[in-house]
Simulated scan of single mutants.
Amino acid sequence: METSGSTRPGIDLPSRDELLRILGFVVLVNLVGGAAAVIGGPGSEWFATLEKPWFYPPTWAFGVVWTLLFTLLGIALYRVWRADESRERRIALGAFVLQMVFNVAWTPAFFGLESPGIALGVIAALWVLVVGTIWAFRRVDRTAAALLVPYLLWVSFATVLNYDIWRLN
Rank of each mutant, 00 (worst) to 15 (best):
L126K: 03
F110L: 10
I91L: 13
A109E: 02
L147Y: 02
L72M: 12
P116M: 05
L147N: 00
A146Q: 12
T133K: 02
V140L: 09
R90I: 13
R87P: 07
A109I: 01
F102C: 07
R142G: 14
T71R: 06
V128E: 12
L113M: 15
I123A: 01
G117W: 10
L72C: 14
R138V: 08
A145F: 03
I75L: 07
G74N: 14
I75V: 11
T107I: 11
V149N: 05
A124D: 04
V130D: 03
R90C: 08
W135L: 15
L93A: 15
E88F: 08
A124L: 11
S86W: 08
V122D: 04
V104E: 13
F96R: 00
T133V: 11
S86F: 05
G94Q: 04
Y78R: 06
L120C: 12
A76N: 10
V101E: 05
A146H: 14
F137P: 00
E85T: 09
I91N: 11
P116H: 03
L113G: 09
T107S: 13
I75T: 03
P150Q: 12
T107D: 12
R139L: 02
L113H: 08
E114S: 14
G117N: 09
A95V: 01
L147I: 04
V131F: 13
R87Q: 15
D84A: 14
D84S: 12
A119Q: 09
P150K: 12
A125F: 10
A92V: 12
L126G: 01
A105V: 01
D84Y: 08
V101F: 07
L72E: 01
Q99V: 07
A146M: 12
G121Q: 06
R87V: 15
P116T: 03
E85C: 02
L152T: 01
